[in-house]
Each structure stands twice: as C-alpha cells, then as structure tokens.
C-alpha cells in the first residue's frame, strides 16, 4: 500500500507544471524516504530530477518500493481538476496497475477521486555523482525567467559566464546581441532577492535557450534558483520546493566542433 497526503496540494500542481513541458512520461519511484523521479527529455539533452521527502507530507506510507509509470499529460489533466486550496492524496495498492488521486476541499465538503492507468516504463537511471562545482550562482527565480525569455529573442543559444565580478548572460543572432550582467548583491533586505556568487574558477558555457526556458516553468515553486557550473559538464538548475524537496534540471552544454 502506498499513500501520500499533501496538505498544500498546490505544490503538486506546480511540480506538474515544472515537468510536463520536458517530459511526456516518467516513473515516480516511491520508497520509505519519499518520492523520486528522474527522466531525460526525448532528445536526451536535459535531465529532470525531482525529490519529495516523506517528511514533507502530512501522511506518508509506503509498505514496499514501487515505481509508478505515469503519462504526465494525463496526470496534468487530473491535477487541473484540483483547486489550489485542496489537500491531495496519491494512493496505490501494491502491484496495482492504477493510481488514485483524491482531492479534498479544505473544509472537507467536497471530495473527488480520479483513478489513472499506470504505464510500464522501462527507463534508464543515470548515476549523478556529487560534484563540487566551480561556480554556483543564486538569483531570484523570476529574474532568471526574465533573462531566459529576453535573451531567447536573440538566438537559440545563451552563453553563461561567471567570474568573481558577476555573471553574464549573452545571446547573439540575426538581429544582434543581448548581454545581461548581474553583479553580486552588496546588501539585500530579503535573502531570496539576493544574487550570490560562489566561484572557485571562472566558467563560461553555452546552452540551448529552449531548455532553459522550459526549466523556468518551475519558477512558481521557489523565490530563488541556483545555477551550478563547471567546465565541460552539464549545468544544474535547482529550485527548492519549500520544506519538502527540490527539482533539479541538468542541461548538457553546447560544445565547439
């Protein structure tokens, strides 16, 4: 028996928004520790890793590990039926071929349940090593979304360069060039509004704007986002999900031929 009850159901709705543009289907791996999902987009350029810890749920029960293959388009349709204020419970029997979503209104006067067919997914899991990155940049998530949107107008690719002085985002195309420089915040009232750079060595990498824009669908999950870069390895874009976990996106860089 698997059962996970989330008081703040809107978080699951936001998680779905953060996943569905990149992934058509994914396996939700449930264990004692919580729910994890790891999947690459169709073209294997990016990888999404979601972690929702058991302690973040109001109620969590997982008698045996299970992997639930879900069509995210279908799951998204179902979660659209939940109100932002609803409490959401995900339930499945051991070895079941369906999963049930239960939505309770805050005062319990409306309860809906939706049963969805599970899929058999034979997905590869990738081992992602713990890495000390040469640069980490924390910035407001809305600022990052704005930068990705603005620079996408100029070209398909964006160069992210990080030095001690700050971080520079650049894109070049037919109409010209756009450069956005962010300096480390000297003084901020609110932690989440800060730009904080930690740098061991300068890094400059090129990434496809299309994927970066897809990652920013997670903006509503967190006020800030962390970018981690090292030479010639995938960029990590991490959004924390309140007290429950995180979604991380890995994006393979573009490399000179």
């Amino acid at each position: 028996m698997f059962e996970a009850r989330l008081l703040q159901g809107s978080l699951l709705k936001k998680v779905m928004e953060a996943l569905k543009e990149l992934l058509n289907e994914a396996a939700w791996d449930c264990s004692d520790a919580g729910i994890q999902l790891q999947a690459m987009d169709n073209s294997h350029v990016s990888l999404v890793s979601l972690n929702l810890r058991a302690e973040g749920f109001d109620k969590y029960r997982c008698d045996r590990n299970l992997s639930m293959g879900m069509n995210l388009g279908s799951m998204s349709k179902i979660l659209k039926c939940a109100s932002n204020e609803d409490i959401i419970t995900i339930k499945a029997q051991d070895n079941a071929d369906t999963v049930t979503f239960v939505f309770e209104s805050p005062d319990q006067d409306k309860v809906s349940d939706y049963e969805m067919k599970l899929m058999n997914l034979d997905q590869e899991h990738l081992g992602i090593p713990e890495t000390d990155y040469a640069c980490t940049i924390r910035l407001p998530s809305s600022e990052f979304a704005r930068i990705c949107r603005d620079l996408s107008q100029f070209g398909e690719s964006m160069v992210i360069s990080c030095t001690k002085e700050g971080v520079r985002f650049s894109a070049t195309g037919d109409i010209g060039t756009g450069n956005i420089k962010l300096a480390q915040s000297a003084k901020v009232d609110k932690e989440e509004e800060a730009v904080v750079i930690e740098m061991q060595e300068p890094v400059s990498l090129t990434f496809a704007c299309r994927y970066l824009n897809s990652f920013t669908k997670a903006t509503s999950l967190s006020k800030s986002v962390q970018l981690s870069m090292s030479p010639e390895v995938p960029l990590v874009v991490e959004y924390k999900i309140e007290d429950i976990g995180h979604v991380r996106y890995y994006l393979a860089p573009k490399i000179e031929d």
Binding site: V45, E124, L126, G127, A208, I255, D257
Partner: peptide
C-alpha cells in the same frame, strides 16, 4: 557552430 552534447555522455547508466 557549437554542437549540442547529450546527457548520457556525462552520466553513467546504472
């Protein structure tokens, strides 16, 4: 022009 690399190039398949 720069070529797009792929994720499996960097991470080991378990």
């Amino acid at each position: 022009a720069a070529a797009q690399s792929r994720i499996p190039h960097y991470f080991e398949i378990l």
